[in-house]
């Protein structure tokens, strides 16, 4: 039985990677094994945000006013437009709102539907103006009284209400009357009137 001489022994060998699909799905295998996790840290696109900030700042700077708001305007009061007004200066304010005349946040008169001779004067407004004038003359004893006052009213207010307020102001010596208007900026900007100090 020496027939076995020269015969080869085939052992058990590990098979190679012979089962190769036509389309290798490496990524799919990676996902299945959890090898390729997507990073959760995302880059914030800062350039667009800075662009937005810059545009916003330019817009706000163009609207910037160094003088600020001189006084508060009520919501239901629409000032008339004017394009050639001067800068509004700080002075006592009379508001004609609906049926009321308000001086420095205090109601000092009514606007009746029909104006009679007795309604021409506003005694409470006159008393308040007189009091403010005394205070101003006490504070600045060596200066002439300027009599500067601001009036604000809705654009639809009949002029009869404006005139009686003006008459009361003039009778108390407040002759430098300024009407507050909504500046539309159509004309050349004018500086405020020079003040005599």
């Amino acid at each position: 039985m020496g027939g076995a001489t020269g015969t080869k022994h085939f052992g058990v060998v590990k098979p190679g990677y012979h089962i190769r699909p036509k389309y290798d799905l490496k990524k799919t295998r990676g996902h299945v094994k959890g090898e390729h996790k997507k990073s959760v840290i995302a880059d914030l696109p800062l350039v667009s945000m800075i662009d937005m900030f810059t545009i916003l700042i330019i817009f706000l700077l163009m609207n910037f006013s160094a003088t600020g708001e001189v006084f508060f305007i009520q919501k239901d009061l629409k000032l008339p437009d004017a394009s050639h007004g001067k800068a509004l200066e700080s002075a006592p304010l009379i508001s004609i709102v609906g049926t009321s005349v308000i001086f420095e946040a205090e109601k000092v008169g009514e606007n009746p539907m029909t104006i009679t001779e007795n309604d021409q004067n506003l005694p409470r407004l006159a008393a308040a103006l007189k009091q403010v004038r005394i205070i101003e003359e006490t504070i600045h004893p060596n200066q002439p009284f300027k009599g500067k006052i601001n009036i604000q009213a809705d654009e639809k207010t009949p002029l009869v209400y404006i005139k009686r307020v003006m008459q009361t102001c003039i009778s108390e010596g407040w002759t430098n009357i300024n009407f507050a208007v909504n500046g539309t900026g159509g004309g050349e900007p004018q500086p405020p009137a020079p003040t005599e100090e």
């Binding site: 006013s65 708001e69 004017a82 001067k86 509004l88 003039i170 009357i177 208007v181 909504n182």
Partner: peptide, 16 residues
């Protein structure tokens, strides 16, 4: 905070 949305101006009259 410091924005002024309504540009106020004035027209003066020489009532005297």
């Amino acid at each position: 905070m410091t924005a002024v949305w309504q540009q106020l101006s004035s027209l003066s009259t020489n009532s005297a």
